[in-house]
Design a protein around this nucleic acid. Structure first.
Lengths: 224, 224, 224, 224
DNA sequence: AATGAATGAGAATTCATTCAT
DNA sequence: GATGAATGAATTCTCATTCAT
């Protein structure tokens, strides 16, 4: 069997195993067995557990971003693009729960290197969303007087909300990808519109922060 | 040294270790050493690694929910309550990064049992937020004609956005808890207002879903 | 059982195993079993296979040098000292064949780090022998007009001959340590005396070297 | 490419790899790659790692003995023969460090079978040297009244010294093969002459051996 | 209240070796 | 004459957990 095919089988098995068991609890033994090959072959082709995991992350990240980009059809009005990108996102995560678990849970939990890998993908999506938000502002004939950092925060919030809703939709029966996308649009669109129109929600002036008392100290290491 | 104190020291050490190393990579040896006690004592007091981790989750979950509840001062208008609850949330996660890592990353990544433990806490917070949303609707003298499921989705989105912003704020220099809370209010409040006023964002009527093609097979080109 | 005792048992087992099987062929499993403990305990006390081997080398090196020093009783004339040091050396290597194999064979064959460890011991012995040679010169009321490098070469040769004779005596039945020491003294002492008396063996003047033709080339790596 | 050539390439690669890495640490993969062929071909031609190593030992042993024999030109007086044989020996070991490492270190360290292979070569050289010693005695018109065993010991010592000096010369900058040979002749020749003249160095009559106490037990203080 | 001593079970990784072509 | 694909069998090392004191 040609190497390229075997490699994909291994990645399939690895994504399934990493997604369900978790990175550390997954054993190379189990992955090899699920892939239908012997362990040495996995090492021959993919080098090490770390490299295998990285390969999984990369493949799943690319698949996800491509699904989202393919979903958000350029040419539509910005809100429609956003909605259909979101719908594509929810569809993809629902169809590839293990890939999603790898990206959203496992990769962020097991070391800087892996985390950086997903962080890159996430940054790409955040950038994409940011673009859409700014495009929407232009379409509304408004010069976006939003500060850069503010838009970044909004895009973060939107993506974060989407991620949470993906988990929620996967777990709540009867919630389709389109419904999830619609809920999120309802939640976010008006706020974005307001902001673009210059209407801000303003926090109270007093230092509400003071209400949260500083904890005395986390760990008091004994001297032994 | 009295048992209760020792136990807290162990939990402190465990939270730090689990938070930084991760549940599986954390060794009981390291935790015991950081706590300044011998390993058998850790077992005597906390039984097993699983129980220890569960204890950590519970302690940190309680601390977080209490911080949020304490932050959202009843008596204020609903939006102010929401804002200050969020601010308290961001403050707490910033001050207890390891506890937050335990709850947000580790507990969700290492098995159903632990995940259920945080899920319970999260459900409590979602319920709390839902209440606030409904209270806001009442304050606006509107019978909330939002369906239950819809509100659940909104609260879910809000909490998800908050979680992401917490990570983002911890990582982005110069973003304070109050700013994060304000960003999120700006993002969410208008949308909630619209919904309460019966203004919905409507998805396109056509089967936009069909745009997202079913993937042929798991096997795609290797990413390298 | 107290740690120090266990550690020595482990080192005993390790020296036996490393000496007979060789460093690489020896498995930690086998060593642990021979020591009558479980593998984890070996790792707990001695860290790693490398560290274990290093500990063996150090213990055996120290034992050997101490045996030689103890054998060469100061106060005797230099030749007697040399002889009894050699006899002690042959006695020790005969009594501790595994330790001798570790030092003479294994440690020199498995990497710079280990080799350096024995090299240090060997240098110590060479220095000791050098001293004895110079002392002999002084006793013969001769200012040793031997050049430093020359004496170093002689000491090297003497020690090398001793090492070979140790192997030979261990393998040839009926050769005692005292006989081996006597053979070596017979072999070496007159030569040293001659040198100290200024009588040198002189090589032929012509370039006898030219007789040994330069090999064309060792490896001709193909281009693939 | 004809088989004979390929085989030599493989042996070249193997000697280099075994010499530098050591027998066990050398992998067939590395050897095949260095030889520029695929692993199965190595097995086709040389059967197994053991056989490959044996082939290396034999080739290098033959090369060394031939170099020595070619160096010791018959017809010369015995001391000159010995000197030029030694010079050839030092020249060869200096020019073929990997081959020398295979013979002197690796082959003796990894099992009886390989050790026997070099032992045979060594015996040949020892016999050759013995002959030269006896020839020298004859040239001095003396019936060698040396006992067989005694001469064997002397030859053993001479060869052992030569082996050590070879390592020493390879490692000490500025020591040529001819110098090493001269040093050894200076060291050994007078002693041999004395012995042939019936002058013996005599050991002390008393049981000097008793000075070396039997070690109480293997267990001694740890070395750290 | 506390610990030094000890282990069973399993993890990742490597390597000599062989088919089928 | 030559190789890409594949594996059985070890090996080093780690860790949660317990016992005797």
């Amino acid at each position: 069997m040609p190497r390229a095919v075997r490699e994909q089988q291994m990645l399939d098995a690895a994504v399934r195993t990493f997604g369900s068991r978790g990175y550390m609890a997954a054993s190379m033994d189990e992955i090899a067995e699920l892939a239908g090959v012997s362990k040495p072959l996995v090492y021959l082709y993919l080098n090490s557990k770390e490299d295998l995991f990285t390969a999984c992350i990369r493949r799943e990240a690319r698949a996800l971003t491509e699904a989202v980009r393919a979903g958000a059809r350029p040419g539509l009005p910005a809100d429609r693009q956003l909605w259909s990108g979101l719908a594509a996102f929810f569809t993809h995560t629902a169809r590839h729960p293990d890939g999603w678990a790898v990206l959203h849970l496992q990769a962020r939990t097991h070391g800087e290197v892996f985390a950086a890998e997903v962080a890159a993908m996430r940054a790409e999506i955040v950038a994409f969303v940011t673009q859409l938000i700014l495009a929407a502002a232009r379409e509304a004939h408004r010069d976006p007087d939003l500060r850069e950092a503010e838009v970044a925060g909004l895009a973060e919030a939107l993506v974060g909300a989407a991620e949470s809703l993906a988990d929620w939709a996967n777990v709540t029966p009867g919630v389709t990808a389109r419904q999830a996308a619609t809920t999120l649009m309802n939640f976010a669109w008006a706020g974005l519109g307001d902001l673009m129109a210059g209407r801000h929600w303003t926090p109270p002036a007093d230092g509400g922060d003071a209400d949260v008392p500083e904890p005395q100290s986390e760990v008091t290491a004994p001297v032994r």
